[in-house]
Design a protein around this nucleic acid. Structure first.
Length: 488
RNA sequence: GGUUCCUUGGCCGAGUGGCUAGGCACCGGUCUGCAAAACCGUAUACGGCGGUUCGAAUCCGCCAGGAACCUCCA
């Protein structure tokens, strides 16, 4: 397996050559959603970023086990204050089971991901289905001497851990500084130090998700599920752990501490973090209330949106920026993405119809290598797209009859576009399903044949009528040298 | 306040020392009955001030502006 895929490791703050522990197998763990509300644009970013990584690693020949967890524990309280959502409110009023809420939003999450063409992970473990593993993991940390009990809860002893290991290595913090800058919060009297974090929390009376444990009726700490489930499915040492940049501290920092304390060694080799999506320069997030849900994009039902945007437009929009940069959302930016994506996909469709010539007048040989090179440079999708757009220009020139391509070159282009556009970037024609019915296609073709005939007879009133009415119905009609093209 | 990071043309967004990224928008042209699409071409850039260098958007310093994180909050 000859390649030099470089990925940026948050742990070392530089790009590193990716070398799997047990090639050709690769273990990939990504922090998934907390399913208590609809997924918003911010959720699409890690899903697409790591979907891209999953697809690319697979393309390189690796056998990837991709684990993406579902957080459905610990944060669902009876008095949840995220009451704006009607369904959640209704569920609360109707005293629904928390698992009903979880299932409801998980179904919606999966549907949104499918629309974004995000491949399902290999394993999607629920935190609630791994309480035993989390209890055992907590016990290991207690046995190792890095945790203590207090009032039925179990806390991680960060100071003690830091004497032997380095707490803060991922986020670049030091413990002294943390002790100084940490805000005072309620309920911290149970903890020895403010930097300590909960491994197991005793449930307050209103907390409806609770399990029995050696310490109390309660629930696992937030960071515990990833340590327990990651090592369960990927082993005590695995290759890549991903997630949003906002999870670096404290979530991933604590995860490292937990796993190192329990196992005596580093669990994760490469930490990868996608940056945030911003809106007016500010992070789009639940707590700020400035998020737009994916369904709102798909339906165009948000005051900031002038129209509906397809899932593919969202995907393309995200891939147009490098995953470690912030990307600023705006209606205008999405409109630009929509047009760019259409251009790329239309060119791809046009490529299928190109008639090869004896020789090529343009050079297309370097495209594959250039795209590979960009991908291997820490998944630089904007560069991949720029190469594809340059190739698009060449393809359109040929389609215009101003240049020619040999059969071999046409085949190469088809192959490269299929690989990068479809298989790796995961971009596809959204309206495919609607236009696949042969009879339907032929009916439209027939109408346009009639229009062409009318044009030949200079009956422009009729030809314009056909075009205008089809346009009103949502069709886009383009005349070409040979005849016409249409799309919905 | 602390830590880390960012500031590129009208908009989005690559690029870490020298060679036009790309997309959208704009303008001019080709094509077309018209339109759309496509193609060709022009223009607009590197927050400010200094420094290093033959040469800096790219390295260093200062200043200005902005962001993320600073623990149960998801």
């Amino acid at each position: 397996m000859e390649h030099t895929l470089q990925i940026y490791n948050t742990l070392t703050r530089k790009k590193e050559v990716f070398i799997p522990i047990h090639s050709p197998n690769v273990g990939l763990y990504v922090c998934g959603p907390t399913v208590y509300g609809d997924a918003h644009l911010g959720h699409a970013r890690p899903a697409i970023t790591f979907d891209l990584l999953f697809r690319y690693l697979t393309h390189l020949g690796y056998k990837v086990r991709y684990v993406r967890n579902i957080t459905d524990v610990g944060h669902l309280e009876h008095d949840a204050d995220e009451g704006e959502d009607k369904v959640a409110k209704k569920a609360r009023v109707e005293q629904k089971e928390p698992m009903e809420i979880v299932q409801f939003y998980l179904n919606r999450y999966r549907k949104a991901m499918e629309q974004l063409n995000v491949l399902p992970p290999s394993i999607e473990p629920h935190a609630s289905g791994h309480i035993m593993e989390q209890i055992e993991f907590t016990q290991k940390i207690i046995d190792a001497g890095f945790a203590y009990q207090s009032e039925g809860s179990v806390y991680f002893d960060v100071e003690k851990y830091n004497k032997q290991y380095h707490y803060g290595k991922l986020s670049g913090r030091n413990i002294e500084e943390l002790l100084e800058t940490t805000r005072t919060l309620d309920g911290q009297i149970e903890k020895k130090k403010s930097v300590d974090f909960a491994l197991w929390k005793k449930a307050s009376p209103e907390h409806i998700m609770r399990w029995k444990s050696p310490w109390s009726d309660g629930f696992p700490g937030w960071h515990m599920e990833c340590s327990a489930m990651g090592t369960k499915y990927l082993g005590e040492e695995f290759d890549i752990h991903g997630g949003g940049m906002d999870l670096v501290f404290p979530h991933h920092e604590c995860e490292i501490a937990q796993s190192t304390a329990a196992l005596g060694k580093e669990t994760v080799r490469y930490w990868m973090h996608n940056n945030m999506i911003t809106i007016n320069g500010q992070k789009m997030g639940k707590s700020l209330g400035n998020f737009i849900t994916l369904d709102e994009f798909f339906g165009g039902s948000h005051p900031l949106l002038s129209q509906a945007f397809s899932a593919m437009t969202i995907r393309f929009f995200i891939l147009q920026a490098h995953y470690r940069s912030t990307v600023d959302f705006s209606n205008e930016a999405l409109q630009a993405s929509e047009k760019g994506l259409n251009k790329l996909l239309e060119t791809y469709a046009r490529l299928q119809k190109i008639t090869p010539s004896a020789t090529s007048t343009i050079d297309v040989s370097g495209l594959r290598a250039k795209c590979e090179e960009a991908m291997k440079d820490d998944l630089n999708t904007p560069i991949v797209l720029s190469h594809l757009f340059e190739a698009s220009k060449a393809i359109n020139t040929v389609a215009d009859g101003k240049a020619s391509l040999s059969a071999k070159d046409v085949a190469e282009l088809k192959s490269v576009f299929k690989l990068f556009v479809e298989d790796i970037l995961g971009l596809q024609q959204t309206t495919k399903d609607n236009t696949q019915h042969e009879a339907y296609q032929k009916a439209i073709d027939l109408l346009l044949e009639l229009r062409l005939e009318a044009k030949r007879n200079k009956d422009f009133a009729l030809s314009d009528k056909i075009r205008n009415e089809l346009t009103t119905l949502g069709f886009s009609i383009k005349d070409t040298k040979e005849g016409f093209e249409w799309s919905l």
